[in-house]
């Protein structure tokens, strides 16, 4: 048998001897590893923090919510401001309409009288 083959045989026998006598984990080590697994699972699987209930809404907030929330309130406020603006400083067309000199007529019509139009006048 050649020297090289002998060396390989010796080395393989050593590997085999080492594989045949593995270091067995002690029960304490296994227990520690399992305890780590439990602790790690408990840490990552903690229930989420309790959700704080929303504070009770006040009357104003409830009214706003009833009307459709802040977007709806924005529209309402804009309409209100526009109304006040027109009231205080009416545009020309509106002014002319409001200050018409002619008063309204009260017409007291006897029964049987109507505003019948003769056919063909319109």
């Amino acid at each position: 048998m050649s020297r090289d083959q002998d060396d390989i045989r010796a080395l393989d026998a050593c590997f085999e001897a080492a594989r045949a006598a593995p270091l067995e984990p002690s029960p304490e080590l296994l227990a520690r590893v399992l305890a780590d697994a439990d602790a790690e699972y408990a840490r990552t699987a903690m229930p989420p923090a309790r959700v704080q209930p929303l504070p009770r809404a006040g009357r104003l907030r409830q009214a706003i919510r009833t009307l459709g929330g802040w977007p709806a309130m924005g529209g309402l406020a804009a309409a209100t401001v526009a109304g006040i603006w027109i009231g205080l400083s009416p545009p020309e067309g509106v002014q002319a309409y409001l200050s018409q000199p002619d008063a309204a007529y009260i017409v007291d019509l006897p029964p049987g009288v109507g505003f019948d139009l003769t056919e063909g006048t319109l």
Binding site: L29, L30, L34, A37, D38, Y41, T44, A45
Partner: peptide, 21 residues
């Protein structure tokens, strides 16, 4: 194990600890 199966942790411990050791 990540889903909370303790037996899976035990199986992995017994299977892999000797190898890494």
């Amino acid at each position: 194990f990540a889903n909370g199966d303790r037996l899976a942790a035990r199986a992995l411990t017994l299977r892999l600890t000797p190898r890494v050791l």
